[in-house]
């Protein structure tokens, strides 16, 4: 039997990796991928908690998270396409038009 804590540690580590990716990478696609990593980490911890409590709610939440992640990925990629058309670059630092 694997203690709950182990799963949580895995989830935390994955979350940190995803966060690091969002802040350190300068490619929009990679940033979106890192966000997906974070969402997955959260999914894992939800399922683990659900299993620990002995009900199915954790999986339900995961279901919804996945749906939302899909929608967000779709819209996000559409935006990336639009941005790429303007600047020919996927570097987030290239888009500073809203600077003061």
């Amino acid at each position: 039997m694997i203690p709950l804590g182990h799963y949580l540690v895995v989830s935390a580590v994955l979350f940190s990796i995803g966060t690091a990716g969002v802040f350190l990478r300068r490619n929009l696609i990679t940033i979106l991928l890192s966000i997906e990593i974070m969402l997955n980490a959260v999914n894992l911890s939800f399922v683990a908690f659900g299993r620990a409590q002995g009900n199915v709610d954790g999986q339900i939440i995961t279901f919804f998270v996945m749906t939302v992640a899909a929608a967000e990925a779709a819209v996000g990629l559409a935006i990336v396409i639009g941005l790429f058309r303007h600047r020919e670059s996927l570097n987030p630092d290239a888009f500073t038009l809203l600077k003061w």
Partner: peptide, 22 residues
Amino acid sequence: WALVRVNESSTAVGAAGDVAAI
């Protein structure tokens, strides 16, 4: 720190609940 403080960290996953049901 948060992880260390979770009470149920030591409980084994898979002990509770009816496997088939969930």
